[in-house]
Every structure is written in C-alpha cells, then in structure tokens.
Design a protein around this nucleic acid. Structure first.
Length: 736
DNA sequence: AGGGGATATTAC
DNA sequence: TAATATCCCCTA
C-alpha cells in the first residue's frame, strides 16, 4: 500500500491550535502547548499540562505563542479545569510583581496557585446513618452508637464516636455488619456571609468623619490609597471596618491583611462582633483542606471577606473591592525568600491595577507611607483621641547615668519603685526587653575569651534555661561549658548584659511573691502554651510580665498599668538605615499597650541617651517631630551617575534591604547596561569595609568574566564606593 | 570503573 | 520546582 504523502506536518494548516501556558516554575515566560480538538481555551483558564516526565497545573497566559519552539516538540494540554479563570487584573498583577521584584513570572504565579487541590471537586464528608438492620450482637457500646444515630440524621464518623463515647473501631464494626451505612454529606459552608449592618458602632465625631471618608472612597469605585494614622486605642479597626461594610454592601469582596503574628482569635472575634460571623482566614498554618476551600470560595465569590497574612494578596478574588493593610509599618509584610516583595506595597499595586481603594492603617506609619501621604499621593486620616475613656500612658525616661541600677542588676531604682507601686495597686506591670535568652555575651574573666559563632561574626547568646549558647543569626548552638575552652580556667565565665531570662531572674529575687510570666518566642511549649499564658495575663493571673517584642504586637493586656522598657536604646546603634524608625515603632507600640482599657497608666524608658530624638519623641509624645526629622535624614536618594554600570556593592545587613536597594537601582538607572543588579544569594565577591560587610549582587551573562570585570570596576568606581548611603523605598509608589 | 555528593540544566 | 545530566573527587 502506498504511503499517504498528502499528510504534510510542516504546513500550518495541519498544526492545529496552540496556547501559551504559564507554569508555576522558575521560568519567566509561558510554554506553548497544543490545544486538543474540542477544547476551548482563553487567557486565565487553568489547565493541566505534561512537563517532562510529570504533569503540572498552569494558567493560559496572554503572551502570544512562541513560534521558535519546533512543532514536533509541542505537547497537548491534558485538562481544562472547571474553575473560574484567573481574571485579567490578577494576570497583570502577576506580570507586574514579577517585573518589579526581578523574579520569574512563573514563581509569582506559583503564589496564586498555592492550593492546587482546590481545583479538584471537593470531596464530600462521609457521614453515617442507621440502616435499620440489627447487628449480630448488640453490646452496650454498639447500643450507644445506634442511640446516637436514632434520630435518622446522618452524622460524621468522628462525631458519632465522640458522641457515643466509643472508639472508631466500634463504629467500623457496625459499618461492616451493615447496621450503619455511609452517606455523602455536603460540606458545611465555609463561612457565613458577613452582615455589613450587624452591629454598627457608635463613633465620636473624629471617628465618624473618618468613617465617612472611607465609605466615600469605597463608593468612588476607583483606585485610591488612604492612610489611617491613629494612636493606639483610637479605634482604627472599627473605622476601617466601615470601609469593609460599604464594600460588602456593594456586593464586592474585601481583604484585610495582618502581620502573621497579629492573626489571632482576638481579631476574628472582633470581626464577628461587628459583622455577625467570622471571616475566612488565610495564613501559612492553615490545614490544607481548609486552604483549598478558602481558595475556591474566594475564586467563586462565595467568600466575601478574608483576613490573612501577606500571601493572601495573591488569592484569585473574583470581585475584589478593597484591601486593608493593618499595622502597615510591620516588617512582617516583607517576604524575604523566593519572590521578595513587600505586601504593603503590592497591595497598593493590586488596588491600582484592579481600580479599587486600598487602606493602610497604623499607629506608627512607615516613613514611606508618611512621605506618600505628605506628598499627596495618599489621603491621610488622623485619629488623635483614644477610644472611650482610655487615656494614653504618661511616659517618662529614666536616665541610667543618674538612676543607676545596682551592680549586676538591670532595673533602675525608680523602675523598681514603680513596679512596687503598681503591684500594690493590683495593677499589672510589663517589662519589655527585645532580647531573647539570658545574656548576649559570655566572656572569660581570666583570659578574656569571648564566645563567638563559628559561622557568623556575632556573639553567642547565653540561653541558660536551655543550658546552651546560641547564635541568633544562623541558629548554631553548643552546650554552655563549665570552664573556658581557651585557658581552661574554672568558674571564670561571666555573662554580660541582660536578656529576658536574666531580667526574669532579677524580678524573681526582688519580687519573690509576685506572679511572673516570661514571654519569648523561644520558650518551650509552643503555640498552645503561649495562648494559655496570654489568657492567664488577661485574667489577671500574673503581676509581672517579662517579654520580648512578642508582647508589642497583636495582643491586648487590659490590666496593664505599667510598662518598663529595660533598654530603650537597644537597636538605635545598628547600622541599619531603618534603625531609628524601627525603634520608634517598637517603643510606641509597647508603651501603647498600657492603659487601653481605661485608668491611669505609665511607661518608663530606661536609657543612656534621653536626648536622643527617638527617645525624646516617645517620651514627649511628639510624633510629628520624629517623622519630620527622620524623613529629612533619609532624603538621600541621590545615586551617582551610572553610565555603563555593571553592578553595585550594597550594604547587606539584611538581604531584603539589599534587595530593595537593587530594585531601586534598577528603577533609577534602567539604562545601566548589560549587567543587571540582582539578588539574592549570589555573592561572587565580598569586600570588607570597616566593620561592615558588603555583598555584591550581580548577575551577568555567562560570557562575562565577572571577577575580572569587577576588579576593574572597583578600581574605577571610587565615587560609587563612597556613596553607599543609598536610601530607597521612600517612594515605593513612584510608578503610579 | 564506579559510587557519592554537589551543582548545573532543562522542561513547551 | 523536580527530574536528570554533569562534574569532581575518591576508593578499589
């Protein structure tokens, strides 16, 4: 039989249709796939495709198909999921974020497709009901099971077992005998719809104006950013809930972002008190099943309100109408691994692309947001009064040069006195020290040896409770020895400086009868224990709380009458350009814990530098003075002219900061030549300059001899070396 | 030669 | 990302 030579695979007429599919991989562009006959695909559709030896879920993307891939290499789409497509604004957002953060589009898509099983039809919950058939033997436990189901209503297996107080094997036995049968039960609704008018609060005039403004911005149905700048306890949450209510009334979805640590039951309950039901949650600790359900609910529009951590920003909302970023200054919004982004900034971008309002809220706004508000890019709402009867605490600096603690102790006499008075008045006292462990440094009195991390250039922190010396930078730990490893002297090791454990020790000696609780992220017992501790504090089962920055965030202490900051200067000496801002925020947040439920309260700041602008601003309550000064000192965003720049050396105290610099450079000097500044882990060269380590973040085509290039460049670029104080992110929204 | 470990490449 | 290819060092 002659071959059929009319079949010519090389002509377009026989090639069939193709689509671009973006896959959740570290690739920047989509791959091309054949569309099988009978399948209709449009951009945004979610598909399953073959990739090498495996299968993968991806999304049809807007890029034109790449004609350079030989048609013989193309494989066909396997399946088109019956799921709402990723809408155009989310697709644009993915592309935008990838471009801005210098990461591959596939990696950003991966954040959207975080719950792949959500695409499979939801499995019904298996429930049991009685068949009427009698088992061969009716034991008392079996009878209890039958009684439990006697009403005829099917019940999930675990519920039956629990209700009848039997083990699941008893239930299984009845199932085998045919006395019970399994029936599929539709899963209960994930969340009940929040009711915008469930419990409308009464506002004072300031709050009422703020709420009106927010409602109006929602009604505009267009992009805007509003910064709610309100002191702790001014009712920010209740005010932005009004924007949320308005969004819900318009039939749109709303997202509230919180720093992971603030995602507590407290907040969900607060939401429920205002809207009648808890919102859907989204964060890293969620069980996979729940995750899938939320993802699907958001995609179909069944879920109207989500409260989540930063990754919730990438959920496939069907009709998103509002994003609120609460505690917008919080550094937890910065993702430091994989795709490096700041969710606060990306929320603004998502609002811009989607054409809806974004609300940023904080008692201590970031410098970036303040600058944007000052320059008129953001609207600003100021809430200066505390809610109801609550008064701000009276804040006093304690000058440690005058009011000196006893040798080997860390609490100044005036702070000790304040604690005594507080306890005598049945109030609670919080001692805040942002340092875990017992002491930050251990040294040998006889030879001067200091315990240092073998991997990092940091001291090992004495964790006496655990009997270890720990590096807080890389996690390295070793047993705390009894004698000096260098000179073998016995009993010569001394702990220098305080950590929370040491403060707790001092408190135990001074106030033996006071009930103490130490709160630190590294204490044994985990989340459950921690929750119990917080409950105990709320119930008044503690007199003195000693804690790290854990206590500054998310939790309320209604009985708190005194806050003592053990070392208010801690952090101010850091080389980090944001050191002052961070310290200001932390001190404001921790002192703001006091007196929120009413009554007089005070805060004492132990310091060696009462005149330092940050300490002075906190003590006087003059926030404006701090902001004005800090904004001025950061106005250095002047970069040297780059011309044929290949890369830049960046002060890399933390990776995300250096990455931010890199991004700013890219935006400031887009013409910087063939070599692109990039993060994160590539460090082909490290230079030491003074005590700071600089990391070079450069990516170059393989053809470039980087080492040689950099040697030349460093020799020729003293101007660049001398201008390392580059400040960025002061204007993250310059793209708008 | 061949195993094991680290590192680079590739997938439509 | 995950599977696979490549390279390098080492032992036998």
């Amino acid at each position: 039989m002659p071959l059929d030579l009319t079949l010519d695979l090389g002509t377009p007429a026989h090639l069939g249709r193709t689509v671009s599919v973006l896959l959740p991989l570290a690739v920047d562009g989509p791959y091309t796939y054949k569309v099988p006959a009978g399948m209709e695909l449009a951009p945004g559709d979610i598909v399953r495709v073959p990739l090498g030896p495996r299968e993968m879920i991806g999304a049809v993307w807007d890029d034109p198909v790449d004609p350079s891939v030989g048609h013989n290499r193309l494989r066909a789409v396997l399946h088109h999921y019956d799921s709402p497509p990723i809408d155009p604004s989310l697709r644009r957002f993915v592309d935008w974020v990838a471009n801005y953060t210098l990461s591959q589009r596939g990696m950003v898509l991966r954040m959207v497709l975080r719950a792949p099983d959500a695409l499979e039809p939801e499995r019904a919950v298996a429930a049991l009901r009685v068949t009427g058939k009698t088992p061969d033997r009716v034991t008392p436990s079996r009878q209890r099971v039958l009684d439990a189901l006697a009403g005829g209503e099917p019940m999930p297996k675990s519920a039956v077992a629990a209700f009848a107080a039997v083990s699941s094997s008893v239930v299984n036995g009845l199932l085998e005998q045919g006395a019970l049968e399994a029936v599929p039960l539709p899963p209960p609704p994930l969340t009940l719809p929040p009711e915008p008018d469930f419990a409308r609060p009464t506002f004072d005039p300031g709050q009422d104006d703020a709420a009106k403004l927010l409602r109006a911005s929602v009604d505009e149905e267009t992009f805007s950013v509003t910064l709610i700048d309100g002191v702790t306890g001014s009712g920010k949450t209740e005010v932005y809930f009004e924007a949320l209510a308005e969004t819900l009334r318009m039939g749109k979805q709303a997202l509230v972002l919180l720093p992971e640590i603030a995602l507590t039951v407290d907040f969900l309950d607060r939401f429920a008190r205002r809207f009648g039901h808890r919102p859907a949650e989204w964060h890293s600790e969620m069980p996979p099943r729940m995750r899938e359900r939320v993802w699907r609910g958001v995609a179909t529009g069944a879920v109207q309100a989500v409260v989540g951590a930063r990754s919730a920003l990438f959920l496939p909302f069907q009709k998103l109408g509002l994003v609120v970023v609460d505690e917008e200054h919080d550094t937890a919004y910065k993702q430091e691994e994989g795709v490096i982004y700041n969710a606060r900034d990306m929320a603004v971008v998502r609002g811009h692309i989607g054409g809806f309002p974004v609300v940023l809220a904080s008692a201590t706004p970031s410098i970036e947001s303040r600058v944007n508000a000052d320059q008129g890019r953001y609207r600003r709402i100021l809430l200066t009064a505390r809610y109801a009867a609550a008064k701000l605490p009276e804040i006093t600096p304690v000058d440690l040069r005058i009011d000196t603690p006893e040798r080997g102790q860390f609490l100044a006499p005036s702070l000790v006195k304040a604690i005594e008075e507080t306890i005598a008045n049945k109030g609670q006292a919080l001692l805040f020290l942002n340092r875990r462990g017992y002491a930050p440094l251990t040294l040998c009195r006889s030879c001067g040896h200091r315990f240092q991390c073998p991997n990092c250039s940091t001291w090992l922190v004495d964790h006496r409770f655990r009997g270890q010396l720990v590096c807080h930078h890389c996690g390295h730990n070793e047993r705390r020895p009894d004698q000096c490893p260098v000179c073998d002297a016995e009993d010569s090791l001394v702990a220098c400086g305080p950590g929370v454990e040491r403060v707790a020790e001092e408190v135990a000696t001074r106030f033996p009868d006071a009930r103490r609780i130490v709160l630190s992220s590294d204490l044994l017992g985990g989340v459950k224990k921690m929750r119990e501790e917080f409950d105990a504090i709320r119930n008044g089962a503690a007199d003195i709380i000693i804690g790290t920055q854990l206590v500054a965030k998310g939790h309320n202490f209604p009985l708190l009458a005194l806050v003592g900051v053990v070392d208010a200067d801690l952090g101010l000496a850091h080389g980090d350009p944001r050191a002052a801002e961070r310290t200001f925020q932390l001190l404001a947040q921790v002192t703001g814990r006091a007196g929120r439920a009413g009554g007089d309260s005070r805060a004492l700041l132990q310091t060696y530098a009462p005149e330092h602008p940050v300490i002075a601003a906190i003590a006087s309550g003059d926030r404006e003075a701090f902001y004005a000064r800090e904004i001025e000192s950061r106005r250095i965003a002047v970069l040297p002219p780059f011309g044929r720049l290949a890369g830049i050396i960046i002060s890399a105290a933390d990776r995300a900061t250096s990455y931010g610099y890199a991004m700013a450079l890219r935006r400031t000097a887009p013409e910087s030549g063939p070599v692109m500044v990039l993060g994160p882990s590539e460090a082909p060269l490290a230079v030491l300059r003074g005590r700071h380590r600089f990391r070079l973040l450069v990516q170059a085509p393989r053809s470039v001899d980087l080492q040689a290039f950099l040697r030349t460049w460093l020799a020729e670029a003293p101007a660049v070396r001398g201008s390392l104080r580059v400040q960025v992110d002061i204007d993250p929204q310059s793209f708008l």
